[in-house]
Amino acid sequence: MLTKRIIPCLDIRNRKVTKGVRFQNNIDLGDPIEMAVSYSKGGADELVFYDITASAERRPIDIDMVREIGKVVHIPFAVGGGLRTLDDMYNVLDAGAEKVSVNSLAVEDPDIIGEMARVLGCQNVVLGMDPVRTDAITSCPSGYEITTRGFRTRTGMDALEWAKRAADLGAGEIVVNSVDADGTQDGFELTLTKLISTSVGVPVVASGGAGNPQHLIDVFQLAHADAAIVASMTHTGRYTIAQIKEELDAAGVPVRKTW
């Protein structure tokens, strides 16, 4: 049976893993390479790295860091942030990454998803999205609107429609990162995650809000996510991946147990 994936997300700023609440008040948590190795030895099923300042600083992603990760991490990992051209993306895969993740870039130019799928292969293309709850249900009938640029820009785009379109264009996986839940550790955004995971044919990764193992049980059992992102709850050492998996296993959620 296919197991549910637990994916630690490492936000990188100045070569340090950092974590904030809703992209603000970030604090540094450690060295990305050391944390990546420790997670991969500790049972993480996949990793994701976001270079969170590359876009704002208008510089390319830190490719040397990706190369270092590729040498020591032998589980799948995705990389995002600051990827603007197909060449940039190819270089990230060539450095050893399994997937590249785009977010704002795809909103500005949706056709890039199809080009990525054609050149890199669908399975390597992750669409990240940052939806926020909205009352503007005329433009956003699902009740969720896509934001970009680290939640700074509202787009008027409906989150569910965007997810369906991205899957049709060739995205191999969709990460639903709730703006409302991000960094709160109060639980995942279950409503939208379920809406998307039951509407698209590609795997859906829930992101934002993980604070305890029950939150993961809920997002898998109630919202049918295929994978879930964790950050603060494991970065700080409050929980290990093994502890989370034990609780998921006890609740009947299939998880990888040998590593």
Binding site: M1, L2, T3, K4, R5, D45, C122, Q123, G172, E173, S197, T198, G201, V202, P203, H224, D226, A227, R256
Partner: peptide, 13 residues
Amino acid sequence: DPLCKIPQMGWNH
């Protein structure tokens, strides 16, 4: 099954 995604992506036994 709409919840069974294709491709299979992830860890299996």
